[in-house]
Design a protein around this nucleic acid. Structure first.
Lengths: 344, 344
DNA sequence: GCGCTTGCTGAAAGCGCTTTCAGCTCTTCG
DNA sequence: CGAAGAGCTGAAAGCGCTTTCAGCAAGCGC
């Protein structure tokens, strides 16, 4: 921690020039074996750790990427972050973390700081605000790269970039889930929705509707209530739904974490799941399989999603079109949904 | 993203020298109001973002701290990280994240990288390995700062440092929990323990024993099984306990996440909680209140703990003694524990 | 009115590293 | 046997910023 060992120290200890020492450690050019060994030995001996700032300044591109989320304790983010971290480790990259707590100004500040760090890419997890300043800032900061706020948007800094993104198959997943619920005999649905600005919300809602429409089922608008994508948001939304009058036999929470809250709300109001009402979520975050009853949901390989986002962000692409990748979800039927006939 | 705007550009645009521009932006010295405004205007106009690497190199200490955990998706870490992020934001600091996946070599690598980044401090969450290399490396890297592997160890780089730490009151918390369980009438206990190398394990176990001993209760050694601090670790440990023969009326899982797994294991083996066996955890991670039954546990203010760790790490201290702070826990009795008499 | 503070401002010296650009030592071939 | 490469190595020029260190103008007292 004290006085830092510099490349110069290593070079002197090895009796070679600074340049040679640098070459040895970076392996850019051939260096005579004897000198190479001397340098390596000296570096090890002195416990030399290169100064990342100096390296970045001198031109070797920075080995850092930025990762921005709303909240580190959101399991959805955590799953993705796991994949991101794994990929980062493989590529020997540093990850600079930002947590916005859903404050657009914070997100702008983070992007700015990360640009100051000259990160190679910025991964925005579940980004997207209606905020005017935010949209303008993003357009300015990332010109011309930011075009939409997918649930995972990887904004890379490689030459000629736009906004790439890796998203779950939200629409198809929600449609498949609805299909399964309809197959269980349900005709009356309610939805616990989220902020309309998020593409995730739009897509999942659309997918769900796709199936209902195809099945000739009408989703009553006042059976759709909006909450935040949190446990408490789900609890509140479910409570509002109950107070307004629940007429559905099956409730679809757009995210698992909302479903957790909804489950608690139903219980607190004396409703049993799936006895009185079936409940389904989306994402398959780790905990929902351990709830009582275990939650029916659409499993998204979050870790895989994170790793893909990182991989994509690192892969240069000179085209001007945004790249979009999708990871498929799988409907997981668990005990929180029962066939309608089974109901009372 | 393209060509970066430098301080020099700003200075020229404002018609002042580089030095003056720097002074204006750092507010270190008085600069004539007129010049100051010109510089500020130019900086805003050009959307100037200082190059953090250059700043760090030139001496302004780096504005980054390191945060190392085992797994970003561990709710215990997530809670602490939340507090860390909040404090970091307040202090305008960058957080560099490392996830070791419980690999000592990874942790060493991360500490090294972070030192390369010249971070101000490194926060190790739940660190501690028995690994020989790790211990040696830590001693070398952090000499003379690392003395123990608390659940949260904040290793700061300020002059004359050692290893500071912020820990939950593990011993007292576990003792209080045991007290509550004994008060419910339990006399036969089992414990789902974790890696013996962790101070967390040692302390919680000790606290639990403290109370039992004082109450004249003997904890049968083969009712203590060890698992990893994960959901599956808890499931496996509980399963082993059942296979070996559960003779307890109450099981204490050293961490909530293990309790989650244990609850599932009990259910899978046809035992009801708390009917057949009571179950208690430790930490009060967000989800456990929503389990069925809700889990009795010791609530630790994780976010507060994270914020305190960050605050401490940033606060210089020239003494050679390690600073240790503790945050108290609160026993939260929920439905997963019943009084013994209530049992069958 | 002269010598001195006082208050700003600019030139220049690095911070530790990468990377040209020359230069030096051997080979290799005519 | 001499010249042209080939293969390494070292000197030096930055990267963008902070921070001395001078320098210059204005304000002060004797």
């Amino acid at each position: 921690m004290q006085q830092q060992v510099t490349l110069d120290d290593v070079a002197q200890a090895a009796g070679v020039s600074l340049a040679t020492a640098s070459r040895v450690l970076n392996g850019t050019t051939q260096v005579r074996a004897e000198l190479r060994d001397r340098v390596l030995a000296a570096a090890a001996e002195l416990a030399y750790i290169p100064n990342a700032h100096a390296q970045a300044l001198a031109g070797a591109s920075s080995r850092a990427v930025g990762l921005i989320c709303h909240d580190v304790s959101d399991p959805y983010f955590a799953g993705i972050a796991r994949g991101v971290m794994r990929a980062a480790t493989e590529h020997n990259l540093q990850v600079i973390l930002g947590s916005t707590l859903r404050d657009p100004a914070q997100e702008i500040a983070y992007v700015s700081m990360m640009r100051g760090q000259r990160v190679r890419a910025i991964l925005l997890i579940g980004s997207g605000f209606e905020d005017r300043d935010w949209q303008e800032a993003m357009r300015r900061e990332l010109v011309p790269y930011l075009t939409a706020g997918g649930r995972v948007a990887a904004i890379s800094r490689h030459p000629g970039l736009r906004v790439d993104s890796v998203n779950p198959e939200n629409r198809a997943g929600a449609a498949a889930l609805a299909q399964a619920l309809v197959a269980l005999g349900h005709r009356d649905f309610a939805v616990l929705s989220g902020p309309a600005a998020l593409t995730t919300v739009v897509d999942r809602l659309a997918g769900f509707q796709d199936t209902l429409t195809r099945s000739g089922i009408v989703l009553d608008p006042d059976q759709i209530v909006e909450g935040s994508f949190t446990r408490d948001g789900g609890y509140e939304a479910a409570t509002r739904l109950l107070q307004a009058g629940l007429r559905a036999t099956c409730v679809f929470a757009l995210t698992d974490i909302m479903a957790v809250g909804a489950l608690a709300a139903f219980r607190d109001h004396g409703l049993t799941v799936p006895g009185d009402v079936s409940l389904a979520g989306f994402d398959d975050i780790p905990i929902v399989g351990d709830l009582t009853p275990p939650l029916t949901t659409v499993a998204i390989p979050l870790e895989e999603l994170g790793r893909r986002a990182m991989t994509m962000a690192l892969r240069p692409d000179k085209s001007t079109r945004s790249r979009i990748e999708r990871v498929a979800g799988t409907v997981v039927l668990r005990a929180s949904t029962a066939s309608r006939s089974a109901r009372s």
